[in-house]
Amino acid sequence: MTVPTEPASSGPRLEPLLLDPTRLAIMASLAGAEWAEFSFVRDAAGLSDSTLSKRISQLGDAGFVEVRKGYVGKRPRTWLNLTPAGRAALKAHIAMLREIAERTG
C-alpha cells in the first residue's frame, strides 16, 4: 500500500468543469495574471458577453473565479481573478492532461 505524500486535491485529477474547452480557455487566460478585465477575457477567449457571463457564473459557483465590479472614471468595469481553489483545480487538471498526453508514445 502506498502512503500519499500530498493532499488528494493537489495530485493530477481531471476537473469535470474544465473538460469544457471554453471554461478551460477562460481559466487558462486568468492563470497568467491577477485580475483581468472582463473585456480582455471575452476577447481572448473569443466569446460574447452573455456566453462569458454564463461561464463565469458557473466557475464562480464552483469557487474557481472571483468577480469584482468597480469604476474607472465614470465607466463601470468588471475584473475577474482565479481563486486559490481555482488555481489548484487548474494545476491538478493540467497535471492530469500531461499524464494523458504522455500516453501517446
Partner: peptide, 14 residues
C-alpha cells in the same frame, strides 16, 4: 495543453 500555455502567455504579455 498547448492552448492553455498559449493563453497564459497571451495574458502575461497583456
Amino acid at each position: 495543453l498547448h492552448d492553455v500555455e498559449a493563453r497564459r502567455q497571451e495574458t502575461a504579455a497583456a
